[in-house]
Each structure stands twice: as C-alpha cells, then as structure tokens.
Amino acid sequence: MIKVGDALPEATLRKLGQDGIDEVTTGDFFAGRKVALIGVPGAFTPSCSNEHLPGFVEKAKQFYDKGVDQIACMSVNDPFVLKAWGDSANVGDAVMLLSDGNADLTQKMGLEFDGSGAGLGTRCKRFAMLVEDGVVTALNVEDSPGSVEVTNADKLLAEL
C-alpha cells in the first residue's frame, strides 16, 4: 500500500468536461500543487454521500485558505455517474470529482478492496491524503468502507 513519502503512481483519471470526457494524468494534475485527495468506495453510497464528500464540500474554503490548491474526490465509478453525484450533492467548484473507472490508480496505490460479494466488483478503500508536488505527505485509510472516522475533513484539515 502507498505510504507517506511515496510518489503517486502514474495513471489516467477522467472527468466529465464541457465537450465530453477529459483525461487527467496524475503526473500533470499533481505537479507543483498541494492537493487534498479523497477516495470513496462509490458515488451515491450512504457514507460517501451523507458524511465523507459533504464534509469536504462544507470545509472547502478552510482547505483553500490553508494553501490547498485543489480538493479532489476519486471513485471507481464512471465520469457520468460522478457528474450526476456532484450535481446532486451541490459540489460546484469546491471539489473536483475524478473517475478511476477501471481502478487503475486505486490498484497501483494498493487501496483496492473486493466488493463483489455485494455486486460492486473492485472498489477503492475510503482514504484521505495530502499530496504535494506528486508526493504523499499525509495518508489516512479506513479499515471499513462504511466508516468515516480517520478520513473526514476535520482530520485532514488538522494535518495541514
């Protein structure tokens, strides 16, 4: 599993843009920036929708005031689902939603779990990390996909 001090692996994420699906490479996205990156097991799932994402939306200004250039939320969902989730959660510009649809980055970071017992396939463990110029400077990972204890916005804010 990825750890503090490691560089993020190279991978391509996706987001829905004005003209369709835009590709976002980790090398370009994280270069020269401080990013609060959260990973969720799935869009529209209870803990993700009711606790995890809303905390980062509500506290976005505090992150940006502390020098974070971008808050991004990654999920093993397609960009269309993430766009609909963002719209329903009134995310606006507070948090960028990134699709790791094939779990490429998730698996390269060693943050995957098998949700096939619930019909979900490979999913991303719930995490919250700070990444500075492509290097992980803080990392919190939940033991259970339904928990939002060590990955909430307040916990990550305290690490800035």
Results as ranks from 00 to 15, higher is better:
D28S: 13
V76K: 03
G20C: 09
A31I: 00
C124N: 15
G39H: 03
L98E: 01
V148E: 00
K83S: 13
M1Y: 07
F127W: 14
G32T: 06
T26W: 00
V57D: 07
E142F: 08
F56K: 03
M109K: 11
F127V: 08
E159H: 02
L111C: 12
L37M: 15
N50M: 10
L130V: 13
V135Q: 14
H52Q: 13
I71H: 04
G115D: 13
K3L: 01
C73S: 14
M109D: 09
V91N: 06
D69T: 08
V68E: 00
V135C: 06
R126H: 10
A11R: 04
G32A: 05
A36I: 01
L98A: 08
D100Q: 13
D154W: 06
E23Y: 07
I2W: 02
K83D: 15
S75G: 15
D19F: 12
L156V: 08
N152W: 00
L156K: 06
L120D: 10
K108A: 15
L120T: 14
G117H: 10
A118E: 14
V40R: 00
D93R: 07
G67Q: 07
Q107P: 03
E132P: 12
V81Y: 08
C48L: 02
K83N: 14
D22G: 08
I71R: 03
A72G: 06
D133Y: 04
A84L: 09
E23T: 14
T122Y: 06
E23L: 11
I71W: 00
R123I: 09
G32N: 06
G67H: 04
K59F: 00
Q107G: 05
D78I: 04
H52S: 05
M129P: 02
G134S: 07
V141D: 05
D65E: 14
G32P: 11
T25D: 08
N140W: 03
V95H: 05
L157P: 10
G117L: 07
P46T: 08
D6A: 10
S49E: 02
E23P: 05
A94Q: 12
L130K: 11
D65K: 05
T106Y: 05
R126V: 02
L37V: 14
D87M: 11
F80R: 12
A72K: 05
P54N: 11
D78M: 10
